[in-house]
């Protein structure tokens, strides 16, 4: 845990926590980079200035590998592993961009987009919004009226932040921040598959739950589903 907290930098998100193993050299898109053993390919790519798009990863939390946006190709290996959960190896040759990867990422991001409130896309500045912009995703092929979570109720019970499940992409960053960073374990994912949702304690409003309002979940949320009320004018302007 030493390097994991002490190696963080303010202006970059390495994607996975910094490590302090012996140096390992690899190539990212042909560019050589050396990082400590135990680092992820995602961290190596960020270090090499070839940041890989991601949603469920951030360097204050251990890798989770759920969003499937950070896929890569590795020379001599099959498939498209997630760069956040793949540790670096000496001499590894990684490709972060290719036609196949673009197609895969577009497919995944389109799925997220299809269950995100459409009128909340313009003007957004969350990591999710920035990722869509960076990858040039503006539409999805799934049409309107499919299964979605647009009717989910906003939980504004906490005086300082609100949880709008319609914007939640169920990446678990909030759940993991509550556990790993804060150590309170107030949040969990309830249900499975399409039914899965973030809940506080026993499916209670945040204010009635074990939540201690440290803000780690809000900070971790990549889609402004958990967001400070103070960032809104009018209704959410606090006292």
């Amino acid at each position: 845990m030493w390097h994991e907290v002490r190696g963080l930098k303010d202006d970059v998100d390495l994607g996975t926590p910094p490590r302090d193993g012996p140096p390992v050299s690899l190539e990212i898109d042909g560019q050589p980079v050396t990082v400590p053993a135990g680092s992820s390919v995602m961290l190596a790519a960020a270090t090499a200035g070839r940041a890989i798009p991601k949603l469920c990863a951030t360097d204050m939390l251990e890798a989770f590998g759920s969003c499937r946006v950070c896929l890569i190709e590795i020379e001599g290996r099959n498939g498209f592993p997630a760069s956040c959960t793949t540790p670096v190896a000496e001499g590894m040759k990684v490709k972060t961009r290719s036609e196949a990867l673009t197609r895969l990422r577009k497919g995944v991001l389109g799925l997220y987009l299809s269950d995100f409130p459409r009128n909340e896309i313009p003007g957004g500045w969350s990591e999710f919004h920035e990722t869509l912009k960076a990858e040039g995703i503006t539409s999805h092929p799934y049409g309107e009226g499919g299964a979605n979570h647009f009717d989910a109720r906003v939980d504004d019970s906490n005086p300082y932040f609100l949880f709008d499940p319609t914007k939640c992409i169920v990446c678990s960053r909030c759940v993991r921040a509550c556990a790993e960073v804060q150590g309170t374990f107030a949040l969990t994912i309830d249900g499975r598959g399409f039914e899965s949702k973030v809940v506080a304690s026993q499916n209670q409003p945040f204010l009635q739950s074990e939540c201690v309002s440290c803000g780690a979940c809000v900070q971790a949320c990549p889609s402004h589903a958990l967001v400070e009320k103070s960032l809104f004018d009018g209704e959410y302007k606090h006292a």
Binding site: L8, K9, Y160, V181, A216, Q219
Partner: peptide, 26 residues
């Protein structure tokens, strides 16, 4: 002031916060 975000390079907190510093500034 519209938001207080814990500073990841803060050597006492490494990007973490509690309810007081994070929210109770008003």
């Amino acid at each position: 002031i519209v938001r207080m975000i814990p500073w990841k390079e803060g050597k006492a907190n490494h990007g973490h916060s509690c309810i007081k510093g994070r929210f109770a500034y008003d």
